[in-house]
Computed example of a mutant assay.
Amino acid sequence: MPASELSAENIAARLSAAGLTPRVEQHARHTSIEVEVPDDFPAGSWREVLEVVADADRFGLLTSSVNGRTLWAAVRRTVPATGDVRGPGHQR
């Protein structure tokens, strides 16, 4: 299993251990992990949750009056090595 996939699974497991329900989706270039954060989520647990998503390549928090709070993280998928790499994601 690629290291990026292990990292995404680890993030999801740690978010689950914090009492949240992660959704993991595989995309062409990254794996996304999202959790809905309830309004009554303990203030003291935020530090732990932010430390978890800090292990991702990108993360953020979406807040809306309609959908509540969604914490997300993205882990780049491992790109296979080739002899001619022309930059991130631009291989022949």
Score class of each variant (00 low, 15 high):
residue 57 D to S: 10
residue 34 E to W: 02
residue 81 A to T: 15
residue 62 L to P: 04
residue 70 T to D: 01
residue 68 G to H: 11
residue 84 D to Q: 13
residue 52 V to Q: 03
residue 65 S to G: 12
residue 63 T to P: 01
residue 50 L to S: 03
residue 40 D to V: 09
residue 81 A to N: 09
residue 31 T to K: 05
residue 68 G to W: 06
residue 57 D to T: 08
residue 31 T to P: 02
residue 31 T to C: 01
residue 46 W to Y: 15
residue 84 D to T: 13
residue 70 T to G: 01
residue 61 L to M: 09
residue 55 D to I: 04
residue 71 L to K: 11
residue 85 V to I: 12
residue 67 N to D: 13
residue 78 T to D: 14
residue 38 P to I: 00
residue 77 R to A: 10
residue 77 R to D: 07
residue 73 A to L: 03
residue 48 E to L: 09
residue 81 A to C: 04
residue 43 A to V: 15
residue 73 A to M: 03
residue 71 L to C: 10
residue 87 G to V: 00
residue 38 P to L: 00
residue 89 G to D: 01
residue 45 S to M: 05
residue 56 A to F: 00
residue 50 L to A: 02
residue 52 V to N: 05
residue 38 P to V: 00
residue 48 E to I: 10
residue 58 R to T: 14
residue 60 G to H: 13
residue 36 E to S: 13
residue 67 N to E: 10
residue 71 L to H: 08
residue 83 G to H: 12
residue 51 E to W: 07
residue 76 R to W: 09
residue 81 A to H: 09
residue 51 E to H: 14
residue 60 G to S: 09
residue 66 V to W: 11
residue 51 E to K: 12
residue 85 V to F: 07
residue 43 A to I: 11
residue 54 A to T: 11
residue 45 S to R: 13
residue 42 P to G: 08
residue 33 I to L: 01
residue 83 G to L: 12
residue 53 V to G: 04
residue 79 V to H: 08
residue 62 L to V: 10
residue 52 V to H: 08
residue 76 R to G: 03
residue 51 E to S: 10
residue 88 P to C: 00
residue 34 E to T: 12
residue 59 F to A: 13
residue 73 A to E: 03
residue 85 V to M: 10
residue 41 F to R: 04
residue 73 A to W: 03
residue 67 N to Q: 08
residue 35 V to D: 08
residue 84 D to W: 14
residue 77 R to N: 15
residue 42 P to V: 10
residue 62 L to C: 06
residue 35 V to K: 04
residue 82 T to C: 03
residue 60 G to Y: 09
residue 38 P to W: 00
residue 66 V to I: 14
residue 47 R to P: 11
residue 46 W to I: 07
residue 42 P to W: 03
residue 64 S to H: 09
residue 82 T to N: 03
residue 31 T to L: 03
residue 57 D to I: 07
residue 90 H to T: 10
residue 35 V to G: 05
residue 50 L to H: 05
residue 74 A to K: 12
residue 70 T to K: 09
residue 40 D to E: 14
residue 77 R to I: 04
